[in-house]
Each structure stands twice: as C-alpha cells, then as structure tokens.
Amino acid sequence: TSQSKEFDPLGPLPPGWEKRTDSNGRVYFVNHNTRITQWEDPRSQGQLNE
C-alpha cells in the first residue's frame, strides 16, 4: 500500500495551507484563509531572521 502523503521533515503545514503541484510538476502552496498562492513553503518562512 502506498501512502498519499509523503513524509515531510518540516512537519505538517500550518492550518489552512495546502501543498499542490502544478502541471509542470512544480510544488506550490495555497493559503485557503487568504486565498493566496506562493512558491515558498510557509513552514520555512520566518526562520530566516532567527
């Protein structure tokens, strides 16, 4: 049996976020709370300043 979700070392996405793949196979992220899409992983944002 194959799992639909692959193991992700960053852990789960924040509430309201979804990881998607476009027609070219590039991963992007959707924030359903604000209806915004972005290329950057929301889990890695904010760690750059620490």
Results as ranks from 00 to 15, higher is better:
35 R>A: 06
26 R>V: 09
26 R>E: 15
23 S>T: 08
20 R>I: 09
10 L>G: 00
35 R>T: 06
19 K>F: 04
47 Q>L: 14
8 D>V: 07
18 E>P: 00
42 P>M: 00
24 N>H: 11
49 N>Q: 15
38 Q>I: 01
23 S>I: 04
17 W>R: 01
17 W>N: 03
49 N>A: 11
20 R>K: 06
22 D>V: 08
21 T>W: 13
41 D>W: 03
19 K>P: 06
16 G>A: 12
3 Q>C: 11
33 N>A: 08
7 F>V: 08
14 P>Y: 07
16 G>F: 10
39 W>G: 06
14 P>S: 05
39 W>T: 11
11 G>K: 03
4 S>L: 06
9 P>W: 03
20 R>T: 08
22 D>T: 14
11 G>T: 07
43 R>T: 06
15 P>W: 05
42 P>C: 00
16 G>D: 11
31 N>H: 01
8 D>G: 08
7 F>W: 12
7 F>R: 11
43 R>L: 01
29 F>R: 01
20 R>H: 08
28 Y>L: 07
31 N>I: 00
8 D>R: 08
24 N>I: 04
21 T>F: 03
46 G>K: 12
6 E>M: 11
45 Q>C: 15
10 L>R: 11
40 E>T: 10
17 W>L: 04
17 W>Y: 14
23 S>Y: 00
50 E>G: 05
7 F>K: 09
46 G>Y: 09
20 R>M: 14
37 T>I: 03
39 W>L: 07
34 T>R: 14
11 G>Q: 09
23 S>K: 05
24 N>M: 08
34 T>Y: 03
42 P>V: 01
46 G>W: 08
35 R>G: 10
46 G>P: 12
44 S>N: 02
10 L>E: 12
26 R>I: 09
22 D>L: 07
43 R>V: 01
2 S>K: 14
40 E>W: 06
25 G>R: 08
5 K>W: 00
3 Q>K: 12
41 D>Y: 02
17 W>K: 01
34 T>L: 15
19 K>W: 05
48 L>Q: 15
14 P>G: 10
29 F>S: 02
14 P>K: 05
36 I>C: 10
47 Q>N: 14
4 S>F: 15
42 P>A: 00
12 P>L: 07
28 Y>D: 04
48 L>G: 13
20 R>Y: 10
45 Q>E: 15
13 L>S: 02
46 G>V: 12
6 E>T: 06
39 W>V: 06
27 V>Q: 13
15 P>F: 08
12 P>G: 09
15 P>I: 05
6 E>P: 07
41 D>K: 03
19 K>H: 04
26 R>P: 03
15 P>R: 15
41 D>T: 03
29 F>L: 00
39 W>Y: 14
20 R>Q: 13
33 N>C: 15
22 D>C: 11
37 T>N: 09
14 P>I: 01
50 E>S: 00
1 T>D: 02
19 K>E: 11
35 R>H: 14
24 N>K: 15
28 Y>S: 06
49 N>V: 09
22 D>H: 09
14 P>T: 04
8 D>Y: 07
31 N>Y: 02
23 S>N: 12
11 G>Y: 02
47 Q>F: 06
21 T>G: 08
32 H>F: 06
41 D>Q: 07
22 D>W: 04
16 G>T: 08
21 T>P: 06
47 Q>A: 12
38 Q>Y: 05
7 F>M: 06
2 S>F: 14
15 P>Y: 02
24 N>F: 10
5 K>P: 05
12 P>Q: 14
34 T>G: 11
23 S>V: 10
34 T>P: 07
37 T>W: 00
3 Q>F: 15
4 S>D: 15
34 T>A: 13
43 R>W: 01
27 V>P: 09
25 G>S: 10
35 R>E: 08
8 D>T: 10
24 N>P: 02
15 P>C: 13
25 G>C: 09
50 E>D: 02
12 P>R: 10
46 G>H: 04
24 N>L: 07
10 L>M: 11
43 R>F: 01
20 R>W: 05
31 N>R: 01
26 R>W: 07
42 P>E: 01
33 N>G: 10
23 S>D: 10
20 R>D: 07
1 T>A: 02
19 K>S: 12
12 P>V: 07
46 G>A: 13
34 T>I: 05
26 R>D: 15
20 R>S: 12
42 P>Y: 00
8 D>L: 08
7 F>H: 11
30 V>N: 05
17 W>T: 01
27 V>G: 11
31 N>K: 03
17 W>F: 10
28 Y>A: 05
31 N>E: 06
4 S>K: 14
20 R>G: 13
5 K>Q: 09
47 Q>I: 09
18 E>C: 12
8 D>C: 10
5 K>E: 01
23 S>P: 14
2 S>L: 05
9 P>I: 08
25 G>V: 00
39 W>I: 04
29 F>H: 04
48 L>A: 11
42 P>S: 01
44 S>H: 12
23 S>Q: 11
30 V>K: 02
50 E>V: 09
5 K>H: 13
32 H>L: 08
7 F>L: 09
29 F>T: 03
6 E>K: 09
28 Y>C: 08
14 P>N: 13
38 Q>W: 00
24 N>Y: 07
36 I>S: 08
3 Q>Y: 09
9 P>C: 03
6 E>C: 02
2 S>G: 04
11 G>C: 09
48 L>N: 15
3 Q>R: 07
19 K>C: 12
19 K>V: 00
30 V>P: 00
35 R>F: 03
33 N>R: 07
38 Q>M: 07
21 T>S: 10
26 R>C: 06
27 V>E: 11
27 V>S: 13
47 Q>T: 14
49 N>E: 04
34 T>H: 10
47 Q>C: 02
33 N>T: 13
32 H>N: 00
42 P>T: 01
38 Q>P: 00
5 K>R: 02
45 Q>M: 11
40 E>R: 08
49 N>G: 11
30 V>D: 05
2 S>R: 03
3 Q>D: 14
1 T>G: 03
36 I>D: 10
9 P>M: 05
19 K>I: 08
23 S>G: 12
48 L>D: 15
16 G>C: 14
41 D>F: 06
16 G>Y: 05
13 L>N: 01
4 S>R: 07
1 T>W: 03
45 Q>I: 04
6 E>F: 05
38 Q>V: 05
17 W>I: 11
13 L>P: 03
48 L>I: 15
31 N>Q: 05
11 G>F: 01
31 N>W: 00
19 K>A: 05
2 S>D: 15
26 R>K: 15
10 L>K: 13
10 L>V: 12
39 W>K: 06
40 E>M: 08
10 L>I: 03
28 Y>H: 04
18 E>D: 07
39 W>P: 08
31 N>C: 07
40 E>Y: 11
9 P>L: 06
6 E>W: 02
26 R>A: 15
18 E>I: 11
49 N>M: 05
48 L>Y: 09
5 K>G: 00
25 G>E: 09
16 G>V: 06
12 P>F: 04
3 Q>T: 11
50 E>R: 00
3 Q>H: 03
23 S>A: 10
30 V>S: 06
35 R>Y: 10
37 T>S: 13
13 L>W: 02
10 L>T: 10
